[in-house]
């Protein structure tokens, strides 16, 4: 069964004036249909304002549908009875690490979630240790979060979600405020969670480079899913992506430019290794 199933999901932000009359309606999600299987690594791409963050907030019931419905682990998020179970099943990590860390010591911060759901103390200690080890932050457990770098803080935030033992983790632009080093660390941690713990990962980003390794990619625009497929299928259409001013990884872009200039490369090249191998083959084979 699909872990997440959205059916004709619509979300409208309604603005009202002082008397409560509707001033404007903005449709942030416009009949979104998708199914996400358990254990998948899913990426959602799109511009600011495309609806991707709104969608994320539906997965853990921070928002509920204006129309249509979304099932998370079989639970309808519109049903208030399930709100807490939904949030326990699907944990969320936000963009700005500074807004998510509340305690003055790293391990206390990670313990905050499990404490709130009433886990016994001895189990909390175990969960916190495991979670910090998973994201490679165990040796910082007694540090103050203030002195950590952005990437480290973000990994602590991920550990905080992991300590709740969710089935799914949603990351809303987790690397937007990080430097390249921090970005790589966070992505590595998330991929490991997915592979080793089989946690369903939903990564929301506008960095194309980060989605190359996902199982499936959705591209959103104006509240709709306008492209979906495996990363390779998505990046095949460089012109279409560029038309919609989406970013294409530099390597794919270079391959695309070379192809346009008549170099017989395959359709969609995602990694450096693929491009180099093909170019070597072409040169040695004397195809030009």
């Amino acid at each position: 069964m699909a872990f997440i199933k959205s059916k004709d999901l619509v979300h409208e932000y309604i603005r009202r004036d002082e008397e409560g009359n509707v001033e404007s309606i903005q449709t942030a999600l416009d009949h979104v249909n998708l199914n996400i299987e358990p254990g998948q690594f899913i990426s959602i791409l799109g511009h600011n304002g495309s609806g991707k963050s709104t969608f994320a907030k539906h997965i853990n019931a921070l928002l509920t549908p204006s129309e249509g419905m979304i099932l998370v682990d079989g639970m309808n998020t519109s049903d208030e009875e399930y709100t807490f179970s939904v949030r326990q099943a699907a944990g969320m990590v936000f963009q700005n690490p500074d807004n998510q860390i509340i305690a003055s010591v790293v391990d206390e911060d990670v313990a905050f979630g499990p404490e709130n759901i009433g886990i016994p103390t001895d189990q909390i200690i175990e969960r916190v240790e495991n979670a910090l080890k998973m994201v490679g932050m165990y040796k910082y457990k007694s540090h103050s979060p203030n002195k950590l770098s952005g990437g480290q803080k973000q990994r602590v935030a991920i550990a905080g979600v992991m300590a709740m033992e969710p089935k799914c983790i949603i990351l809303d632009e987790p690397t937007a405020m990080l430097d390249p080093d921090g970005r790589a660390d966070v992505l590595r941690a998330v991929h490991e969670l997915n592979k080793l713990k089989h946690i369903t990962v939903i990564l929301i980003t506008h960095y194309m480079e980060e989605v190359v390794d996902s199982d499936y990619v959705y591209v959103m625009e104006k509240g709709k899913i306008f492209m979906e497929g495996k990363p390779r299928e998505i990046f095949k259409d460089v012109e279409k992506l560029k038309e919609h001013s989406l970013d294409v990884p530099q390597v794919t872009l270079l391959a695309h430019e070379l192809k346009k200039a008549g170099v017989p490369l395959s359709d969609c090249i995602l990694t450096r290794q693929e491009l180099v191998d093909e170019l070597v083959k072409i040169k040695k084979g004397g195809q030009i």
């Binding site: 963009q95 937007a176 506008h206 960095y207 001013s245 989406l246 970013d247």
Partner: peptide, 8 residues
């Protein structure tokens, strides 16, 4: 450009 999307 911190925090802007690719187009921005």
């Amino acid at each position: 450009t911190a925090g802007l999307d690719p187009k921005g």
